[in-house]
Design a protein around this nucleic acid. Structure first.
Lengths: 213, 213
DNA sequence: ATTTATCTTGACCGTTTGGTCAGGTTAAAA
DNA sequence: TTTTAACCTGACCAAACGGTCAAGATAAAT
């Protein structure tokens, strides 16, 4: 029956485990995105994952363990987008690629962005170590790159951190504040066309704003 | 004793009421900013306000009533900043004034911005009516103004909503993600000088980005 | 066929939650 | 001085919370 339900056939036990973990993780991401760590409940996660609450605790010992796992997954995806900052020589091309990658991530995985937003708004209690090491190192090295572009006269003299914060804020806004945007858009989620237009506008305004077009 | 504690003398009862309400409201704003509506607890609010929990319920019947009151106060301040969009003829001057007002609001009242962020991230359950009427009307009328500027050739042809979202996102980022910025800034909150520089950078990039400088 | 390891879950536990209330204190009005 | 209306709060309650557990079901290994 489980094989039928899950559509799997071979090593049942392993498949069941994977399926249940995935279902619980997906539900947890959604619930943490809505309510943050403290406001989320394991009962609600179990309900959405369609498993008994005790089963959630069978696969993930505690609510905190589940939350940390979700944060890890989010950081993995974050690093993907971060990579688009590498391996190119044209500043405009690099910045455009990075902004587009972050916009696409907000579109494809909005829940992850919202979990991250909750985490930071509350004071980064679980992730301050990760931010002050991995993320800060990544950011600081990009700041060096931007400063080099400025020195080389390739772009305007702007404070690199301010620029990066603007990119973070604007791209993540399309995930975190999607509901507000939807209301402004006559209670309709942005269509693919509208989103593509928004993405192009964001890229154009920022590139021109720093003298890269 | 209450008169001594509050430093008031005349109509004690009224003064006591005002003092306690203010203390509870300030505590509630902070706790809602940290945890959102669901994650916040009345016990924690009482603790920070330095009153017994029962006293919180004496002044504000329910947690929801207290939350709605906080949201109202935030919207009032929001409208203040919104007003800077009026009464001027120079687009650059208007946009600069609005961005600076929003940046200053993020600096002066970061908790309010964070409460608002929680509210929207969760899906605007309490405020969708307010957004779809008051806020949307305000936004749509500014969009008309921006489109007129474009028609008159005063600025680049940009999608006005994308521009406004960029301003919302970037300015509020300095309140909502203050903790992340602090970590990037070597665990130091932005100094007044740093914040002023950030504000000027935001203004400069956006104005130039839309062809207003 | 039997054992073993994993998966499943209703029932339960101690704690925390939002909210209530009776009985008290205080200050203004009569 | 007495009365009255507002303020104060420890103690309490039912519900919801994160987490546990024993007992059963299932599937792989022997």
């Amino acid at each position: 029956m489980t094989a039928i339900k899950s559509g799997l056939n071979g090593a049942h036990k392993a498949a069941i485990r994977q399926e249940n973990e995935e279902q619980i993780l997906a539900a947890a991401e959604l619930v943490f995105a809505d309510y943050g760590f403290k406001g989320a409940t394991t009962a609600r996660i179990a309900e959405i994952a369609n498993v008994p609450k005790a089963n959630v605790h069978y696969y993930f010992s505690t609510k905190e363990a589940l939350y940390r796992r979700i944060m890890e997954d989010i950081c993995d995806h974050w690093l993907e987008a971060a990579m688009t900052f590498e391996n190119s020589s044209d500043p405009a091309e690099i910045l455009r690629g990075y902004i587009e990658a972050k916009m696409d991530l907000s579109r494809a995985r909005p829940h992850g962005s919202r979990v991250w937003a909750h985490e930071i708004i509350r004071g980064a209690k679980f992730s301050s170590d990760y931010i002050s090491t991995t993320v800060k190192n990544w950011l600081d090295s990009r700041v060096v790159v931007i400063n080099r572009w400025i020195t080389e006269g390739k772009m305007d003299k702007v404070e690199p951190y301010s620029l990066m914060y603007m990119i973070f804020a604007t791209t993540q806004h399309y995930a975190d504040f999607a509901r507000q945007i939807e209301i402004f858009n006559n209670d309709q989620p942005l269509s693919d066309t509208q989103f593509a237009e928004a993405k192009e506008n964001v890229v154009r305004i920022i590139l021109k704003g720093v003298g890269l077009s």
